[in-house]
Design a protein around this nucleic acid. Structure first.
Lengths: 247, 247
DNA sequence: TCAAAAGTGTTTGACCTACACCCATGG
DNA sequence: CCATGGGTGTAGGTCAAACACTTTTGA
């Protein structure tokens, strides 16, 4: 089609109407922790390719919006979950990061589709429980929380691969970044924090070592309050994440 | 434009003709080491947006080719450099990895363009010197090797940012992966290997510690041959990279 | 006063840093 | 035989794993 020479070297003598452009979608993998498990929000497809299969929520890029890919992903997150997107004092906004772009020629049977995938880490407490059902009860309508580590077999497109990449990314980054804190509410206990790490890494950790490690990497603020209501055992102090230490 | 509700939840009831698709390009950041510096291959734009500016080579995605994004990037690398893309015995092929996707609405003044950026690490010895001029002599025609760490000021589009991200990625990965070996020919000396690390990390390392570290992470094969021709000093043994150690 | 969960301290060993020394070659 | 670069060994500090112990609460 294109006698290269020119084309490959330079994007310059390009006429938009000359080419058959692919479609572009941005998908958002929304991850949270529910009852000691990583969960991902998946929809059930209502229409023809992969009808009835589970899929990652997303949408075609609307060029008319003049919106960056990052903003598109963030907007889809809000639209999908009715999440409280406002920024509560001190705490940073929802964590969203670009994961990877998927573009195999046959991943969508209708036409060529390039998907820019993002993932978000959200504390479960941030969701409006009325909109998204948390339980394991079967639901027909829209979105549902499913296990990130063992997604359903009948996933649409290459979305199983996308979930696998997401899990790998989270596991890879949890040890040298502060992403884990994004899965917790503003105030949390040591045990809750340790749970997040254990769930992501899939193994048990020793309290003492875990705390030393965390303290060496991050600055935390110990609050005066304690968490009660659990009944038995010594009450734990509540913490706030402040920031990562340098270097 | 799109009354959402449906759209955002599902990619299903989609008619290709209904939307204004963006264009998609794949760009390839080709990195090598020349005389103790990281260099990147940049072209000079011949046509209107950013005419005369330096840019990363790339091209519009040709849907007709039915080619994955990875394959497109690999093909562009070959077309750009006439590199010996064949796989010499034992040694793995050219290292190419997806870097990131760039999609700000105003990054190309002509229309909306989504760019999937890849980077490649190539030993300088793999290039056909006749095609790409290595020297620092000014050239008018096509591609030229420039400093990755201090790219020219007049870079086209957001390509300066792309180069910055590339450098960060290489620096980040060099310590816990084996990417450094991709910048060396099949046979190399300890000193050459150490140079690669020092150039990427931008600091001097101690021989003894460097070797211990490398030996603990990778399996290397020490050859019987030695490197000579440098004149003075004890000749160094030649090494081959075998693989990374587990865990 | 006992169980359960939170919180602390100490020993051990692995690994990194720094530095000193030995080896092989060309002039 | 000496300058130059290649190659090796080791003492000391830092940090993480493992384990034992103390504290605070509800029942």
């Amino acid at each position: 089609m294109s006698k290269n020479g020119e084309l490959k070297e330079d994007l310059s003598n390009y006429d938009p109407r000359e080419y058959d452009d692919p479609s572009v979608t941005t998908d958002i993998i929304i991850v949270t922790i529910i009852k000691n498990d990583l969960k991902v929000l998946l929809i059930k497809r209502k229409h023809h390719p992969f009808k009835g299969c589970r899929a990652v929520p997303g949408g075609f890029l609307d060029v008319g919006r003049e919106e960056s890919l990052d903003d598109t992903a963030a907007r889809e997150l809000v639209e999908e979950t009715n999440i409280i997107a406002s920024v509560p004092e001190g705490k940073s906004a929802i964590y969203i990061e670009q994961l990877k772009t998927y573009g195999e020629p046959d991943r969508d049977p209708r036409k060529r589709v390039i998907t820019v995938a993002y993932y978000a880490l959200v504390p479960f407490s941030a969701f409006d429980k009325q909109v998204i059902e948390a339980g394991d009860d079967a639901e027909e309508g829209s979105a549902k929380w499913l296990f990130l580590k063992s997604p359903p077999k009948n996933m649409a497109f290459d979305h199983k691969k996308i979930l696998k990449d997401t899990l790998e990314r989270i596991r890879g980054k949890v040890s040298y970044t502060d992403i884990a804190f994004n899965l917790l509410p503003e105030k949390f206990t040591w045990t809750e924090l340790q749970n997040v790490y254990e769930i992501i890494l899939g193994k048990r950790l020793l309290r003492s070592n875990f705390r030393r490690k965390i303290k060496s990497m991050y600055i935390l603020k110990e609050l005066k309050e304690t968490k009660k209501g659990k009944g038995v055992g010594r009450p734990s102090v509540l913490l706030k994440y402040v920031r990562m230490k340098k270097l």
